[in-house]
Amino acid sequence: MRTLAEQHAGNRRSRHPAEHPVLETRDLGIRFGGHLAVDRVSCAFARGTLTAIVGPNGAGKTTYFNLISGQLAPTSGRVALFGEDISGLSAPQRARRGIGRAFQLTQLFPRLTVRENVRLAVQSRAGIGLELWSMWNRHVELAEKAEHCLHRVSLADKADRVASTLPHGDQRKLEVAILLALEPEVFMFDEPTAGMSVDEVPVILELIRQIKAQGDKTVLLVEHKMDVVRSLADRIIVLHQGRLVADGDPATVIASPIVQEAYLGIASASPPEHAMTEGAAHG
């Protein structure tokens, strides 16, 4: 089966010339009734980069993610992967083309074991889901891959537990392990460390650092903790009320007045001189 997976990966890469950005959104937007949740966001993500997406609650970060990975259909604009328009593809099709997603609200198979949760992701990657006659537990190499992914998030000792019985932090780790198992080209993390205890967070951050260090993957990270963003990201984009309001390297973006106003000014205790602009932004 490994040969199949490699073939798959080979296809994925050779089809896509290097000059294109790995992922690109153009005028991407969605309207829920009268509310523009994401408002014509155009942005390109290059291979080997880690882009942090920040913004206050309700800024449209998760919705933007849903538009990219196909859980929602946009009302405007398009998404391109390796220069190819994938706006018309369903979520499973996009997943098979290499867009991998870890969810903010943990999405597991609750009554299956931790190992099986990950193995199903490996199996999807291997493309053998429609085999009706082989025995699932005879595909040893899939089980080994799953084991390896669990090891990377330090969940290997809990592999036989039923997913729903894990504590919250471990469920978050499992969510990340599932994403690793998909071996995507684009990793989308939606607040991967939310709700984790302080000593668990470094495991996940180290993992994201490793993925970035591989150099050939593209990482999108929604994260609230500014210290995390500052240490990991090559680039930050800021969403505010559905619009892309800032884009650049971390130091510049964090220092820019628009971010101080739209995001940091609200998130932290704002100094007096910001009080007025903040009020204006809300009014």
Partner: peptide, 19 residues
């Protein structure tokens, strides 16, 4: 079979199976 395991996945969390 691998197929049967996907059926379980669909039963457990269809949204996740799609993703």
């Amino acid at each position: 079979s691998p197929f049967g395991r996907v059926l379980l996945a669909i039963r457990e969390n269809e949204f996740r199976a799609e993703a």
